[in-house]
Simulated assay, not measured.
Amino acid sequence: MSTSPRITIKDLARELGVSTASVSNAFNRPDQLSPRLRERILSEAHRLGYSGPDAKARSLRTGRSRIIAVVLAESLTYSLNDPVASELLSGIAEVLDAHGHTLLLLSGRQHVSQAPGSASMADGFIVYGLMPSLKVLNDLPVQRPLIAVDFDIEARPSVHIDNEPACHAIAHHALASRPARRIGVINLRLTASPCNGPITDDQVLLSAERTITRLRLAGFHRAFSEHGIDPADVPMWNIEENTFEVCTPVVEAILDLPDDERPDLLLCTSDRIALTVLTLAERRGLRVPEDLRITGFDGIAEGQYRAPRLTTVRQDSVEKGRIAARMILGLSPHEDRRLDTELILGDTCP
């Protein structure tokens, strides 16, 4: 049985009476064409079964694939469901779409040898979050541009928010607004070895270059010291994954402590942790903020649309993604960037 030959970019251009460059721009650089011409080209391409320029052929011909790979520290399912990660990806995609680039998502939990073949053709890499192994980064092509988001890679530009000052501000507010008898800090991935529970003295903490949690903790500690509290006297817990299911056993153990041991102020390094505390506290009949005050970090919509409204720090994750994308495309200088945050005073720690 014979099959029809695959239509080429030259065939389509000839059929439409336009240049091959116009056809290429319709798929890869939409800003270079009028909307009417682009729609005409795409409509005819669809009718003839032409799906667009071959990325591998274009890469071999021009040295550029117009593919930008985003390497995520977590699984793709987790990242797409996480409000902060999904907002970051939205900002990246917005810029790439506007400039005719394709977004390729990779998981840092997948060995680079298992990644799609197009990963090796990517024009650049945006790496987001605490990688499970630095080997993932070592396997990326060293000659391609790379931007780190929320952690540092030597000799590569990074995009951060003001983690330490932001956490200093929210802890200072909590301590100044009302005295706390028992303070606790719940961290996200602070320990070098896996730990889902109390942090003990024999555990090694990750450096600030590896995890933003260390910077957030430094802000809390600065506020403690200014209020005459020894940071060493404040108990800490660690959460391994920023989900309700993983947070729950740790938070339940804290809230089920005897009344004279249970914290009356919990500073949480993510909104997901803080919202888990709030939900489980309400199930136990604890009054928030009368019996327990809670602070979060991130400013996700869920924390602002429920009652009591979460006291937190809002970061603009969409803009963080836009900045990283502009840098990787060469539209902004390759230099370290740090974004400001906003303190939101809600009902959980007024």
Rank of each mutant, 00 (worst) to 15 (best):
D260K: 00
R182L: 01
G228N: 14
D264I: 01
K56Y: 12
I328H: 10
T62F: 06
I323M: 08
R36Q: 13
D259I: 01
L175D: 08
T341G: 14
L134R: 15
D230H: 06
P132I: 10
V149N: 08
S43F: 05
L339I: 07
H99I: 07
R284N: 03
Q203Y: 03
I183D: 07
D97L: 13
G49W: 02
Q114A: 11
G49M: 03
V234H: 06
Y128N: 13
I126W: 12
E241S: 10
S34M: 06
L42I: 10
E39Q: 09
T276R: 02
G219Q: 14
A98N: 15
L12D: 03
A223G: 12
T191P: 04
L280Y: 05
T248C: 07
R144L: 00
L331I: 15
P145Q: 07
G108W: 03
R6S: 12
I147F: 07
G63V: 00
R182V: 01
H334M: 12
P145T: 07
S22Y: 13
N187T: 12
Y50C: 07
I328V: 14
A85H: 14
Q203R: 08
L331N: 15
N163M: 12
N238D: 08
T3I: 02
V18Q: 00
P35H: 02
E39L: 00
D202A: 03
Y78R: 02
E154Y: 10
T276G: 02
L190I: 12
I239L: 09
A208Q: 14
G17V: 01
I229G: 08
D54E: 15
I344M: 06
L215E: 14
G346S: 03
I68N: 02
C268F: 04
V250G: 02
L37D: 00
L106K: 00
I199L: 05
G346D: 03
I344C: 03
L48F: 04
H101A: 05
N242T: 05
R222D: 11
P289K: 00
V112D: 10
I170P: 13
Q110N: 06
I186P: 05
L343H: 12
R109Y: 06
F224C: 09
S43M: 04
A21H: 11
T312F: 06
A180M: 11
V95G: 11
Q143P: 00
I41N: 04
S120F: 04
D340N: 15
G49H: 07
D54S: 15
A119M: 14
T312Q: 10
L217K: 14
L267M: 15
I186E: 04
S34V: 09
A301P: 14
D31Y: 15
P165Q: 14
T211P: 05
K320W: 10
S51W: 12
E261T: 00
P179M: 07
R178K: 11
I7V: 09
A55E: 00
L37C: 01
I273Y: 09
D162G: 12
L280Q: 13
I328N: 09
D54A: 08
V277K: 06
A281I: 04
S118L: 14
E302M: 13
L266F: 08
N196A: 05
R64M: 07
D82M: 10
V136C: 09
T191F: 04
L137D: 04
E154I: 11
A281L: 03
H227S: 09
Q304H: 10
